[in-house]
């Protein structure tokens, strides 16, 4: 009796593992090079119930991002109900959030995952239930989604580096300040930059350090770099957070401020305008959220959507700086924004 039970259990386990191993076709493509996804089976008449599982709004980029989602939702009367959850950067909570949204019978799930791999089961479950998934900002490592909307971090890092190389005429010593070690966006941006620097033998990378996207750490690390290297010709910072700290350190050192890269964060733009150093801002668009909602509506209308959407970056240079910098607005506003003034966080 016991033996049979054991046999049954073991075979069930083996079956389970096998079924996991069998690759599943989550989506049907309309073209051979797998660019367009067929969404006919997701067609549903409005009103729709859309769920948005957000990782968090723990920094102002995420606040702006979430605002864009809300803003776009508000423009579509055919969306009957919009359900929003905030996982507070906790993947376990986000798994529960998604379960919750599915239980409430959503027609489509927009998810901005807290971490890459941890949310795979959540999106797989949604797709299995026939609820289409739009992944935005950070990716999942499964194929179980309809479309992935992001703005390429690799491209962003690359653009910044290309600008720096151009400013230095292909020759000079640079310091690289990254975000959080091991995080997808930081590593992708760094890779984009290194591909450019490696292709330009005149550029010497003095040092690359991680600053956890913290202005305090950015300043502390930069202050030490300044002591260590008598000559720094350029600073590549992957975000305006540690970038603004680094600029503070450079200003205090009493040396002329070399070219420093940054983002569309208002603080960086303000410093740039006030101090007049050579700068460039490459945005990581907060309106990815808006695009995600637009793709979601396409899906529910049965309109084919691209498997991957790269939201284009805005590049702010000396020439168009005045158009974007807003001295009257808070430091951490992101200026590559599609929000009308009344939608800005107050």
């Amino acid at each position: 009796m016991r033996k049979t039970l054991v046999v049954v259990i073991v075979s069930l386990m083996i079956f389970g593992i096998c079924s996991l191993a069998l690759a599943k076709d989550w989506v049907q493509y309309l073209d051979a090079d797998k660019k367009l996804v067929d969404t006919k089976m997701y067609f549903a008449p409005p009103p729709w119930k859309i769920g948005f599982s957000n990782a968090s709004i723990s920094n102002s980029w995420r606040v702006f991002f979430a605002k864009h989602v809300e803003y776009e939702i508000s423009k579509h009367p055919e969306i009957g109900e919009f359900l929003y959850t905030d996982a507070q950067d906790n993947p376990a909570k986000q798994l529960a959030d998604v379960e919750d949204l599915l239980a409430k019978g959503i027609d489509l799930l927009i998810i901005s995952p807290a971490t890459e791999a941890a949310l795979n089961p959540a999106v797989e479950k949604a797709m299995e239930k026939g609820v289409p998934v739009v992944v935005v900002d950070r990716k999942v490592t499964t194929d179980a989604y309809v479309t992935f909307v992001e703005s390429s971090n690799y491209e962003m890092g690359k653009l910044m580096a290309e600008w720096l190389v151009e400013k230095l005429n292909g020759k000079g010593k640079v310091v690289l300040l990254s975000g959080v070690a091991g995080s997808g966006p930081a590593e992708d941006r760094l890779k984009g930059a290194m591909d450019v620097f490696n292709a330009n033998p005149g550029i010497e990378v003095l040092e690359q350090q991680y600053c956890e996207w913290s202005p305090v750490l950015g300043k502390q690390v930069m202050a030490t770099m300044i002591q260590k290297y008598p000559q720094i010709d350029g600073v590549w910072a992957d975000s305006a957070l540690q970038g603004s700290g680094a600029i503070e350190a450079l200003r205090e050192a009493g040396r002329p401020i070399p070219p420093v890269t940054g983002e569309d964060m208002n603080r960086y733009l303000k410093m740039w305008k006030e101090m007049g150093f050579e700068g460039v801002a490459v945005s990581f668009p907060t309106w990815q959220g808006q695009i995600a909602v637009q793709k979601a509506i396409d899906i529910l209308n049965g309109i084919p959507v691209p498997r991957y959407v790269d939201v284009p970056r805005l590049v702010i240079t000396k020439d168009n700086l005045d158009k974007y910098v807003r001295m009257d607005l808070p430091d951490e506003f992101f200026m590559d924004s599609r929000l009308p003034d009344e939608w800005l966080p107050k």
């Binding site: 723990s58 102002s60 995420r62 808070p330 951490e332 966080p345």
Partner: peptide, 10 residues
Amino acid sequence: FVYTKGAPFG
């Protein structure tokens, strides 16, 4: 966060 709406100013 409630006070700054995620975006510090001043």
